Amino acid sequence: MLENLGYKLKTLRVRNQLSRKQVAELVGVSVSTIGLYESNERLPSLPVLVKLACQYKTSVDYLLNIDTSDKNSLSLDGLTDKQIKALKMTAECFRNSN
């Protein structure tokens, strides 16, 4: 389950064009700690994992390889903040229409 966590964290960091230093500052850990996460030598705490998921605009479920094939969930991976906001507003309209 966690064997791909480091790979995913590094891939997401590179894809977001961030340095280890930038990510470390954003989530409140040291640069060396980011390196340990990315090499699977250390696991992030839950609060740090949540911060990383938010920073990379992905879910903790994705990072941990948790199956979210539930038909009531929707992946926001790869969407911009503007697109996510539009989806949230659309969902809220549907909720309020009942």
Rank of each mutant, 00 (worst) to 15 (best):
V29K: 05
V31D: 15
S45G: 05
R20P: 03
A91I: 10
T33G: 13
N65R: 06
S69L: 02
A86V: 01
G35N: 06
M1E: 13
R20G: 15
S19P: 01
T58N: 00
R15I: 11
Y62T: 00
A91S: 02
F94I: 04
Q55I: 13
R95E: 13
N16W: 07
M1V: 10
T80E: 01
D81H: 02
R20Y: 00
E41A: 05
S69C: 08
V14T: 09
S19K: 01
S45K: 14
V50I: 15
V27R: 08
S32L: 13
L63V: 07
Y37N: 05
N65G: 08
D77A: 14
G28H: 03
L5R: 05
E38M: 10
L52F: 03
T80F: 01
N16Q: 12
Q17K: 11
L76C: 04
N96F: 00
L64F: 10
I66R: 14
A53N: 02
Y56V: 09
F94A: 02
C54Y: 15
L52I: 00
V27F: 01
S59I: 03
I34H: 01
N96S: 08
E3G: 11
L2Q: 08
L63D: 12
R95N: 11
K57D: 06
D70L: 10
Q55F: 12
Y56C: 00
K51W: 04
N40Q: 10
L26K: 15
I84T: 01
R42T: 12
R20F: 06
S97A: 07
K88M: 02
P47E: 10
Y37C: 07
K88I: 09
F94W: 12
S75D: 04
S75L: 08
M89C: 01
S75A: 09
Q17T: 10
L12G: 06
A53H: 00
Q55E: 12
S32T: 14
E25K: 13
L9W: 03
S39K: 14
L26S: 15
N40L: 04
L2T: 07
S39E: 09
R13Y: 07
I34P: 09
T11C: 04
V14F: 04
I66L: 13
C93Y: 14
S32G: 08
L9K: 01
Y62I: 03
G35V: 02
V14H: 00
D70Y: 05
K88D: 08
V48W: 10
K57Y: 07
F94E: 01
N65Q: 14
P47F: 11
T80S: 15
D67E: 07
L64M: 13
E38S: 04
V14P: 09
K21L: 14
S32W: 03
S19W: 03
E41H: 15
S32V: 13
K51P: 00
Q83W: 00
L12K: 09
A91Y: 13
S30E: 09
L74M: 11
R42L: 15
V14W: 01
D61F: 12
D67C: 05
S73H: 07
K10A: 13
K8P: 04
K57A: 11
